[in-house]
Simulated assay, not measured.
Amino acid sequence: MVDHLLKANCQTVHLGGFSDQLPPALTVNSGDRISVETYTGFNICQQAPVAFVTPELIEIYHNLPPERRIENGPHLLTGPIYVKNAQPGDVLEVRLEAISPRLAMGFNAIRSGWGALPKDFSEPQLRFIPLDLEQNCAEFPPKSEIYIPLRPFFGILGVATTETNRSSIPPGVYGGNIDNPELQAGSRLFLPIFVPGALFSIGDGHSAQGEGEVCTTAIETSMNGTIILNLHQNLSLTTPIAETPTDIITMGWGSTLDEAFESALKQMIEFLEKFIGLEAKDSYVLCSLAANFRITQVVNSPQKGVHGMISKSTLPQTFKFIRDDHF
């Protein structure tokens, strides 16, 4: 294992989307550990207080090369990271070892025409929210004595596809803008690989987010992370699967919540068939008895998200999704 530091600067970040044409910001071997910096708030730099805008972010804002502005998404992503020997059809494991806010400040934005209730809340609004990193919480609204526990995670964890310019907004089988708050430090995400090297990018830090992310954004926060990237060449997946210390998580997306739920359910049934050895009908019943399906997000147009969770304590004691003493 080799330890790497991937700092966020004009040569290592890209804006708005994924592309298989981007040169790698870093090349690693399977099993390497990467300490990675991410920034958020590219589009609101000029409106942000000093506590939010660092000199590094200002430098990126003013001098990001045109070729690193990929698509129309608002997300500033660090990467891509090229994994040696990764080929289409393989699986990339992203092990999330540590996640922490870079700054004691985040923002939340209501965007006109977006969100779960765009007609009811049509006026755009930008708020900056201080973070109490010692008490691990944020007070919102200000002086309300309502304290939100911080549960930092990366909203975007994804790989490039053969689609040269893909917006960072919708999630999909490549991962991307998953916005799943269950993916805390100590979790693993498994992504299908579509292009040589995988070309993995990370960003969209969230300090706290309710399931649904109904107003369009969370507490959006520049974030530090430590990850390990493992390559699995004997594992076949068509959609992402995650594992936390307590649960297996499947993910579904669709233009409606019904479609997203159906997709997450089918993925859970397929997981139980493939990795537990159950028949389809028994898997279907077990989902009804023991799995929980939750709304991930309803705002990443055109893809709403639902994730299914089944406790590993329910599964056979001999079950190991991918052998790892970390779990």
Rank of each mutant, 00 (worst) to 15 (best):
L229T: 03
E163F: 01
L117G: 04
D258C: 06
G203E: 06
S311K: 15
E97Q: 13
D120I: 04
I241N: 10
N300Y: 00
G175M: 11
D90H: 15
K320P: 01
G308Y: 07
G73R: 05
A260Q: 12
Q87R: 14
G305L: 01
P130L: 00
F293I: 04
Y174H: 15
N165P: 00
K119R: 14
I81R: 11
F107K: 04
Y82S: 13
L189K: 09
E145N: 15
G225L: 01
V13T: 15
G73I: 01
A185W: 08
M223K: 06
S288D: 08
A138K: 12
D3F: 13
A109F: 03
L157T: 04
D32A: 07
L131P: 09
P181T: 02
H206L: 03
Y147T: 10
Y61W: 14
G176H: 10
Q184L: 15
E262I: 03
S168P: 07
M309Y: 11
T12V: 03
R151V: 05
I169N: 12
E67L: 06
H75I: 03
F42Y: 15
L5R: 09
G212V: 08
I148S: 11
V28W: 11
Y147N: 09
F42D: 07
C45Q: 09
F153P: 15
E123Q: 10
I58M: 14
I81T: 10
E243A: 08
V173F: 10
P181F: 02
R111Q: 01
E37K: 08
G252F: 07
L92Q: 05
E59R: 12
L315R: 04
F107S: 09
H14L: 03
T244M: 05
A86M: 02
A198W: 01
A291R: 06
S263K: 12
Q87A: 13
Q46L: 13
L278Y: 12
K274R: 15
N292C: 05
E123S: 07
